[in-house]
């Protein structure tokens, strides 16, 4: 065997198994789902199926899908916004104001929950938000006469839980890009007479934008598809597109509709990013 041929076989042998696995579990299933989304009969029903676009049309025809989608997009927006408002200062503090062992310890503490069970962390908020829960008791220990306080099964509860789940993403991505900014750049700006706020607005923030954007993408996309969090913390009030898709597969067993809704959701996310992309590109992000 020539060295060239041997190299070919080495590449094939090393990457083949991993990519075969991904093909069987990710790419073929996504194709199967696309096929399923244009069938007029659920695969669970033993009846011959024919092709139709009715499942996609349903999204626009049934009056509740558009508000539901808007609701989900808003949920993604609020979660991303609060993650940014809370997470960016934390990332900044960590990258520029804390040094050495403190930084190492604080950083580890922030990313630790991020790799622990998401479901359990959402569950833990029910202990805090429900009537007679931690917040309620804390409130009544200060104001004994305050009315009963219950946030569980409300919209804010869902947002709080989601922010708690995704905050470490934002801190992580912002930290990485803030960390990469050379301190001498900030000193140069200062020595040229820029105020601290100007340095931040004109130098630091623009340079850290890629971190903000990747954090926002990593948060926005999964939040749009979330169903477990709104179900546990929002109850009946937290209906999202994700919850509706889940029901098509587990409750009503209308797989083609669920599949079509899944792809519609992906398409909406893509459209949002396609709209944002030129704006961000003009501002020099995603170079």
């Amino acid at each position: 065997m020539s060295p060239r041929q041997r190299q070919k076989w080495a590449i094939f042998g090393l990457t083949g198994p991993a990519y075969a696995w991904l093909a069987v579990t990710i790419f073929l299933p996504l194709s199967a789902m696309l096929y399923c989304s244009v069938l007029d009969v659920s695969p669970l029903v033993p009846r011959p199926a024919s092709f139709t676009l009715a499942n996609y049309a349903a999204f626009f025809q049934k009056s509740f899908y558009l508000p539901l989608t808007w609701w989900s997009i808003l949920l993604g927006f609020w979660t991303t916004l609060f993650c940014f408002l809370v997470g960016y200062p934390a990332a900044y503090a960590l990258a520029k104001r804390v040094k050495g062992r403190w930084r190492e310890a604080l950083f580890l503490l922030i990313v630790l929950p991020f790799w622990s069970n998401a479901l359990v962390r959402i569950f833990s908020w029910t202990m805090v938000l429900r009537q007679g829960g931690f917040l309620d008791m804390a409130l009544h220990s200060v104001f004994p006469d305050a009315p009963a306080f219950n946030l569980l099964f409300t919209y804010p509860a869902v947002v709080i839980g989601l922010v708690h789940s995704y905050l470490p993403y934002m801190i992580l991505t912002c930290y990485v890009s803030l960390q990469a900014i050379d301190d001498s750049l900030m000193e140069a700006a200062r020595s040229l007479g820029a105020e601290n706020t100007t340095v931040f607005r004109r130098v630091v923030f623009p340079l850290s934008l890629p971190g903000v954007i990747s954090g926002a993408v990593l948060i926005f996309v999964p939040v749009i598809g979330s169903f477990m969090e709104p179900r546990i913390l929002g109850g009946a009030k937290g209906a999202t597109l994700g919850m509706n898709i889940e029901e098509q597969f587990t409750v009503t067993a209308n797989w083609p509709l669920g599949a079509a809704l899944s792809f519609t959701m992906l398409a909406i996310v893509l459209v949002i990013f396609a709209v944002l992309y030129p704006i961000l590109k003009r501002r020099g992000v995603w170079a």
Binding site: L22, I26, L30, A32, L218, E246, F249, S262
Partner: peptide, 27 residues
């Protein structure tokens, strides 16, 4: 291209991947 193919499993919501697997495995 192969490295780019690692992105869909990370970025596509698990809800979509999970239900797609259910459909494919069912068939």
């Amino acid at each position: 291209v192969m490295q780019l193919l690692l992105l869909p499993p990370i970025t596509i919501p698990w809800l979509v991947i999970g239900t797609a697997m259910l459909v494919f495995f069912y068939w």
